[in-house]
């Protein structure tokens, strides 16, 4: 492995731009992602920066079970994210639909049906600590030797 590649790996895993998209959640996971910004958890000390702009993001946090409005829009957003990219499902909703996965619901979970999911953070809602450690654990795996893997 070249030194350049090593530098790239190191830099990439310490500089993660995050976009999050709420495809029909109860807001619970949403504000727990926000709480990660709080100085208590301080997501930025790990080099994670929360944008809401898919075009400059590396990691997409998907929150919520998929509502009919989002079925096509979610794919569009995913395609707008430049490579290398990864999606992390936050909370139960994108994994199983949580309590909404019942008869009569309008949602169509799981999110895996629409975009590939790299990691899942179960919980309703997950604690900010769990979200943080999930993002931190998924980042190096994806960005390590990205060029080698996708040559």
């Amino acid at each position: 492995m070249s030194i350049l590649q090593e530098i790239k790996n190191a830099v990439r895993s310490r500089s993660i731009h995050v976009a999050y998209v709420d495809v029909g959640s109860c807001n619970g996971c949403d504000i727990e992602v926000l709480a990660c910004l709080a100085p208590r958890y301080d997501i930025e000390q790990y080099g994670i920066y929360v944008h809401n702009n898919p075009r400059e993001a590396d990691v997409l946090l998907v929150i919520g079970s998929v509502t009919p409005q989002w079925v096509d829009k979610l794919r569009d957003i995913w395609e707008k994210i430049p490579e290398p990219k990864a999606a992390v499902a936050i909370g139960n909703c994108p994994i199983s639909g949580c309590v909404y996965a019942r008869r009569g619901t309008l949602t169509t979970p799981p999110v895996e049906n629409y975009i590939p999911i790299a990691a899942q953070v179960p919980g309703c809602p997950p604690r900010p600590t769990e979200i943080l450690s999930a993002i931190l654990s998924v980042a190096p795996l994806i960005y390590k030797d990205y060029e080698e893997k996708h040559r």
């Binding site: 949580c98 179960p122 309703c124």
Partner: peptide, 27 residues
Amino acid sequence: CPAPGAIAVLHKKGGWEPEIYPGHCIR
């Protein structure tokens, strides 16, 4: 249990045992 598919009592070796499914369980 209020969440669908979150808990099941399964027959394991040596008796019954509840199993929790993360991703369904809402804690």
